[in-house]
């Protein structure tokens, strides 16, 4: 120790053995960290592929006892009857209906909120509001389900004079709340990277703030906003607990959003508990899971594409 202290002032020119081992150690830890990161990256890919193959392995045998036509277009789901029927059309239609309506509700509010935060709000307000909105994304879905059950469903029932408030519309409203944080956060990011020159040029032409937001900022950030919407849609498609609690759970193909319905996620969640491993119902539920996985994969890939294009666009500017 004492020797190192003595030699340390002149150590910059000629390396001492101690410094060498230190460098060596650094190199080893560097390697370790690199390896760790590589492993983490590989693990997530392996898990994704594993899930996909599991879904294929458990789900595809469904088509040995139910024809694809019956599975996709049949409207009778009686998994525990003799003989069982596995028509999933009601679930597919419910999922599409609930997702589309929640998107229609969430997108204008989400973009409006993002435009306010990015273009109008003073920096202090933005800095306080944005983390709070992002915090909303972490709300447990079972809590959202309870809120839907206790507050939104009676309100929807009396507002639209329905037979029951447990319906697709209530589920859509809850899903809109749940996808809002993602839409707001990602859209706001997209709007805030629109170069300031764009705004200045617009103002120089004598436009108002509203015209600048509507005709300049939002179009410039459009691909980012589109990605935000796609991510919101992905969230809405995959959400389970909330729709299980408030969508009503009827097995008919829904005609209107005010009908009680069972989206695909709710059908899987409510059926998997008593499905015996490897049984017919088990396979059919996995097949629904496979369809759902492919749907969310397509939405996410699409969002990724759009986001990528966004990045390249502003790399040029």
């Amino acid at each position: 120790m004492a020797m190192i202290q003595q030699t340390s002032p002149g150590a910059t020119a000629t390396e001492t053995p101690a410094a060498k081992t230190l460098r060596g150690r650094l190199r080893i830890s560097e390697k370790l960290v690199e390896g760790g990161i590589w492993l983490a990256g590989i693990i997530s890919i392996v898990v994704l592929l594993g899930v996909f193959f599991l879904l294929l392995k458990e789900g595809l045998p469904t088509f040995t006892h139910t024809s694809p036509g019956e599975f996709f277009f049949g409207d009778k789901w009686y998994p525990i009857s003799e003989p069982p029927r596995f028509g999933t059309l009601p679930f597919l239609v419910s999922t599409l209906m609930v997702t589309i309506i929640s998107t229609v509700i969430a997108v204008p509010i989400g973009i409006g909120c993002a435009a306010y935060l990015s273009e109008v709000a003073p920096p202090k307000v933005r800095e306080t509001l944005k983390p709070i909105i992002e915090l909303l994304a972490g709300f447990p879905s079972v809590v959202m389900g309870l809120i839907g059950l206790l507050l939104i469903s009676p309100a929807v029932q009396s507002m639209f004079n329905l037979n029951t408030g447990l319906c697709g519309l209530t589920a859509s409203i809850m899903l809109a709340f749940m996808s809002l944080p993602v839409i707001v956060s990602v859209s706001e990011d997209a709007l805030s990277v629109v170069p300031d020159e764009f705004r200045q040029a617009s103002y120089a032409l004598g436009t108002t703030k509203w015209e600048t937001i509507w005709h300049v900022c939002i179009p410039a950030a459009l691909s980012g906003i589109a990605a935000a919407v796609m991510l919101g849609v992905g969230r809405a498609i995959g959400e389970t607990m909330t729709v299980l609690m408030v969508a009503g759970g009827a097995l008919a193909v829904p005609i209107s959003p005010a009908d009680p319905m069972t989206p695909m996620t709710a059908a899987i969640a409510s059926g998997i508990g008593n499905a015996v491993r490897g049984g017919l119902q088990y396979q059919a539920l996995f097949a629904i899971g496979l369809v759902l996985f492919i749907m969310t994969l397509i939405v996410n890939l699409f969002a990724d594409r759009v986001l990528e294009r966004e990045k390249r666009k502003f790399a040029r500017v």
């Binding site: 409207d75 009778k76 009601p90 059950l149 009676p154 029932q157 037979n163 029951t164 408030g165 447990l166 299980l244 609690m245 009503g248 759970g249 009827a250 097995l251 008919a252 193909v253 009680p260 069972t262 969640a269 409510s270």
Partner: peptide, 19 residues
Amino acid sequence: PKVLMLPSTEEGVSETAKN
């Protein structure tokens, strides 16, 4: 097909009490 399938008995009772 129009019957509402609920995930718990509590939910059924509370919906009946409201509806």
